Simulated assay, not measured.
Amino acid sequence: MTQGGNAPLTATRVTVEVTAPKPLDVSGLLLTEAGKVRSDADFVFFNAPEGPGVTHRPAAGGAPDAITVDTAALPSEISKVVVTASLDDTTATFAGTEPTATVRDAASGEVLVTFTPPRLGRETALVVVEVYRRGGSWKVRAVGQGYANGLAGIATDFGVSVEEPDRTAAPAAAAPPKPLAPPTAPTAPAPPAAPGALTKVTLDKGKVNLVKGGSVSLEKNGKPFLSAVRMGLGWEAAGRGRNIDLDASCIAFDAQRNKIETAWFMKLNVFNGAIAHSGDSLTGEGTGDDEAITVHLDGLPPEVCGLVFVVNSFSGQKFTEVKNAYCRLLDAGSGQELVRFDLSHAEARTGVVMCKLIRQFSGEWVMTAIGEYVDAKTARAMVKPAAAML
């Protein structure tokens, strides 16, 4: 599965195993339609391994930490169970050690789906997947939402009471530990926006300049900001009077990284115009965007989980002969530039995966700058490398 994707559950009882190169603690939270626990008893983890319809299995005998969800035994007011993972070492992060969730039929052990989040950074805890009710059936969704303040940050978001320990009291007089042990903290409670903490980048403060691997959520003040965006892609013509025919394309993928459609110069409109290409630029001459692709996010079919924007050299020249390639995201209505990513280097290859838009489990969209070069001269040849970068 890709981030934001979902799949129907074919078993009533499922076990979600989470593995990583570093030791993990896996937990489950039972949530109502309001997205909150009813009480701290809805938090299931190693110190409280039993909940209504949810159990924690500690790692043992080569089997990883896991959460088992019996959908038939969940209370009627519970609409989803989120499965989280946090690092045992509170000084470590998930950077370069992204965990993998394996969802199995609890009875047979058959693998139903797997999910590995995209590249992570300073996150120390993660909402990995969620098992949720939709109509009369249950599904699983790939989430991959990270937190820099450990499991305590996740628990607080979902309504679990988390208290800092009293570090001034003598050990003998210390209160019994709470069910949730917060991560190592300084002598005073850290403020919500402590320096160095990883926070979700949004459009609240205006235009965002991304670097390679950076992400920004297309929301403002906690709500989806835009329903229609335009991705502008540009480059400068090569020197010495030579022109280069570059083509920008948008490839839409489902939750299994399968291509659904491609908007490119040979097919300017897909999904009944929900994605529309501006047309082919043969030279890169002139100012401003050379090609643009408008996306009506609200008009995309629900099976579209990811959009990857690529540029390839149809004429076959290498990107080392191209100057100042960039992509920028604009408000399709006002034309206001919201996000910009400038390629800081070039490679002697004929294609580049510029960026991606991923639909999150919450419905919001997140843009991530990629900037990876590949050998591909057409949109068709870009599908496989683009899928690998979702």
Rank of each mutant, 00 (worst) to 15 (best):
A107Y: 03
A107H: 00
G109W: 01
E110Y: 06
V111T: 10
V111I: 08
V113F: 13
V113L: 06
V113P: 06
F115Y: 15
T116R: 07
P118W: 04
R119V: 12
R119A: 10
L120K: 11
R122D: 04
R122W: 01
R122P: 06
E123Q: 05
E123G: 01
E123C: 05
E123V: 05
T124P: 10
L126D: 04
V128K: 03
R133C: 04
R133Y: 02
R133Q: 07
R134W: 09
R134K: 13
G136W: 07
S137K: 11
W138C: 04
W138V: 10
A142G: 08
V143S: 09
V143A: 05
Q145F: 14
Q145L: 15
G146I: 01
A148M: 03
G150D: 03
L151C: 03
A152L: 09
G153W: 11
I154K: 10
I154R: 01
A155N: 05
T156F: 12
G159V: 07
G159C: 06
V160E: 02
V162T: 00
V162A: 05
V162L: 07
E163A: 14
E164L: 06
E164D: 12
P165R: 02
P165F: 01
D166F: 08
R167G: 04
R167F: 04
A173D: 15
A174D: 11
A175L: 13
A175H: 03
P176L: 13
P176S: 08
K178M: 13
P179M: 14
P179F: 10
P182N: 07
P183K: 15
P183W: 14
T184F: 12
T184P: 14
A185D: 06
A185R: 07
P186K: 04
T187F: 15
A188K: 08
A190N: 00
P191W: 06
P192I: 13
P192E: 13
P195N: 07
G196W: 05
A197K: 06
A197N: 05
K200R: 14
K200G: 09
V201C: 05
T202K: 06
K205A: 15
G206R: 11
V208W: 01
L210H: 00
V211Y: 12
V211Q: 09
K212H: 03
G213M: 10
G214W: 02
G214S: 07
S217M: 14
S217E: 10
N221G: 13
G222T: 02
G222Y: 05
G222N: 15
P224Y: 00
F225R: 09
F225V: 12
F225L: 13
L226P: 09
L226H: 11
S227A: 09
A228S: 14
A228V: 12
R230I: 07
M231L: 14
M231S: 11
G232Q: 03
L233W: 10
G234T: 03
W235Y: 10
A238S: 08
A238G: 04
G239S: 07
G239F: 08
G239K: 00
R240W: 15
G241E: 03
N243L: 11
N243K: 10
D245Y: 01
L246V: 02
L246S: 08
D247F: 00
S249W: 12
S249C: 15
